[in-house]
Amino acid sequence: MTPDNPKPIIVARNVSKHFGAFRALNDVSATFNEGQVTAIIGPSGSGKSTFLRTLNRLEAHDSGSIQVDGIELNDNLKNLDAIRREVGMVFQSFNLFSHLPILRNVSLAPIRVRKMKREEAEAKSMALLERVGLKDQAHKYPVQLSGGQQQRVAIARALAMDPKVLLFDEPTSALDPEMVNEVLTVMRELAHTGITMLVVTHEMGFAREVADRLIFFDQGSILEDSAPQTFFTNPEHERAKAFLAQVRHGF
């Protein structure tokens, strides 16, 4: 899926982050190209989610630099707003706005942030809901939907802003097993559209099948950064081997 002339869209250099005395990220550097689908895996507490959350500043990094689409991510609110318009995020616990109907959940940001007309935004939102197979649920409230449906709405909500990059923070970890596939199917289709995706996941099958690139986090650092095939068949580090042995029953 990677184009012939890769254009970097996210450039992270020497990013570090502490939570008190705990070093969550330790000098992490990585470049992500446009259209690339990257799976980020690793044991819990390894910093993979923290890294993803620094990319749209839900966590502020302590040192190092992050550039998204050429814009420096820092305390400058103008930069931050510009970046958040380009970077969508899908959360582990969906975080749909519980007091708003599904359609309003999807159309709110285009109306407020992109200043789109209401009818236009709603038409677009309906099209997106149709794409994730939930057109007939548009007027329900989040609590009336199953977990898998809520997560598909969350993906539609992120897509409504036409982001260049989509961040997925363990999108299937909070789902009942029988609902994982409906979400992965939507993500699989997305991966083929050329949007840049960074997916923190425990779904090894998905990582292997869909991702162009695989990053293995351990103790706040990137330990391996390779093609999925290479990683799964021939991991370099002992810790990656141990991790794979632990999760191998999953695929």
Binding site: N56, L58, M89, F91, S93, N95, L108, A109, R157
Partner: peptide, 15 residues
């Protein structure tokens, strides 16, 4: 999480 979702979508703190 509700606030994070809104901020991640680009809504300003006031919105």
């Amino acid at each position: 999480g509700q606030v994070e979702a809104a901020r991640a979508l680009g809504l300003s703190p006031f919105q």
